[in-house]
Amino acid sequence: MSQQQMKKGKQTGGWIFRLLAVFAGVASLILFFLTREAEFTRQMIETYHQDIYVMVALGIGILFSICSLAGKGKMSGYLSFLAFLFAFLNDLVFEADYLGSLFSSIDPTELTAEFVVLTALLFAATLLAFLGAACKPEPEMGGGEEV
């Protein structure tokens, strides 16, 4: 495989990762918005506004992902990754009471499909954004301008 082909492959792979990261981020945001009010989350919402943290981080992550997709600089990919990472970790904090109940097994709390899917989506968005950023060609290779 020639060096040019490798570059092209890397470029294409990175673009797909960034595109998928946008989809995963948007899906996460929608699912989080729809399921955030649950048995375990009132205090997190009313007292700590932790849901806002997660949604704002997701929004920023999506925005930077789109910028990155549009070829707006290498750092936008990493910023999207960092925002998604923040959203992922803070969603775990948001679900701390649920997770506590799940693992302490005091009440018969079971793993819900919503939680599994949302966690998987957030993780996927984070991972894809990282891969998208890591695979993005350097500016000198013609991949866009750094911000």
């Binding site: 997190m44 932790q50 943290y53 960092l82 970790l89 904090v93």
Partner: peptide, 21 residues
């Protein structure tokens, strides 16, 4: 920078969790 930013995200989340819980 990205490496330290990841650490910052993690430690800030820990800070947030420590405040809440």
């Amino acid at each position: 920078t990205v490496f330290f930013a990841v650490l910052l995200v993690i430690t800030f989340t820990a800070y947030n969790a420590a405040n809440i819980k």
